[in-house]
Nucleic acid binder design. Structure first.
Lengths: 220, 220
DNA sequence: ACAGCCATGTAACTTGTTACATGATTTT
DNA sequence: AAAATCATGTAACAAGTTACATGGCTGT
């Protein structure tokens, strides 16, 4: 989603052709996420289909310029004015993995943590080295690139803290004899579930499973 | 990718049918990422196609059990033993957005930062409240759920620090008169690029763009 | 009878990735 | 002539999301 919006935002500055958009995107992100050229033409097709851009005529050298529409301009403004959704969008691969692993019998979760820590540390070291080369950016390219490197560094730093914290947590849980989760043996009952109104009112909205899902997912 | 691996890991504990996998996944992740049922059957189809699981016979109630194969077992072991790829996989939406926004003329980047901060803060507040309810987990379900909540909290905390840091950085950059990036006006030259051997040797591998991409992307 | 869960599945769709095909242009 | 870049595109595929169809079972 962000690539689509990024390309549209660049087109908001003026007409571009496909190949040019790749260059512009790479300049502005320091080549951190190299864009495949083919993907750009696909994205342009979809943007055109959604009437956010319009394809102009090709110039003498055969370059096909795309121009942003009013709807496209509005879309860019809206994108810049609204926050990135951290709710549904952010499904952290390692968080899922760790949660699942912690419930599996016969899995050394401490080892899983350690493997991830080593990998994260190595990446963080490289990023820190990279950062030193452009710590005082003078060009807008370097500035944009520094933002991204900083973002990665802060994120990895947070992950490392989480890993440390989790290690302690799991040690305490093991001490408290929290066991892994076997497959549920009870086959669920079919049919409309039994509703005990008295019990419902007594516990109110305090039921663990209900309050938990709502608190995190936060559906408005 | 993580959903696929998670389901396979659960199947590594014993045969399950589709609907059951949804329940098991939700138990183990606290319902943070609600899995669509249809998606599970699709994933099972692909796992079977890749010979990681095998479909057994349906039982009397019409439940179709899947069983993990040797290859599937090996895949789970390999998954648990290797780190999650933070290189290519992690393309942070907001990092891209911020980098692009910082290069666009006429965009109030401080405002973009502020909007994101408000959103992140609100989420963090909710998560902190959620965490208090299960700070001393006694069941494996609560433990797994706490891991995920903690992970989100640490990540959002890191993001907030990054936002604060970035605000200062952008203020300094503005003071140093780092301007936004207009579209490149020079049309690139076609054909095989000119290679100045003398210049190449002089600068060596120190060229900014080259070293930067390698340092971050780290292709082995 | 009907609501609501259990259970399986299909169809259409989106974003994104990889690989490939094609031709023009220009330097070696 | 060969190599490398500029430039446009297509095809196949993976993973995920949403919506829908179908039937069985059971409590109200």
């Amino acid at each position: 989603m962000s690539i689509r919006q990024s390309l549209l935002a660049i087109l908001d500055q003026g007409p571009c052709y496909g190949y040019q958009l790749r260059t512009e995107f790479d300049r502005r992100t320091g080549g951190t996420w190299p864009l495949n050229v083919g993907q750009i033409y696909q994205t342009l097709d979809r943007l055109e289909r959604d009437d956010l851009i319009a394809k102009g005529e090709a110039d003498a050298e055969g370059r096909a310029y795309y121009e942003i529409t009013d709807a496209g301009h509005a879309s860019v403004a809206s994108w810049l004015a609204s926050p990135v959704d951290r709710q549904s969008a952010t499904r952290d691969e390692f968080a899922i993995k760790l949660a699942i692993a912690s419930t599996l019998p016969g899995v050394d979760v401490a080892q899983v943590l350690q493997v991830q820590r080593m990998s994260t540390l190595a990446l963080l070291r490289d990023l820190t080295r990279t950062k030193q080369a452009i710590d005082e950016p003078t060009t807008p390219e370097d500035l944009a690139y520094l933002l991204i490197v900083d973002g990665q560094i802060f994120r990895l730093d947070g992950e490392l803290r989480w890993l440390d914290h989790t290690e302690g947590l799991l040690a305490r849980a093991a001490a408290a004899a929290v066991k892994p989760l076997p497959l549920s043996t009870e086959t669920p009952k079919r049919g409309r579930p039994f509703r005990d109104r008295a019990a419902d009112e007594a516990s109110g909205s305090e039921r663990a499973d209900a309050s938990r899902a709502e608190a995190v997912v936060l559906r408005p």
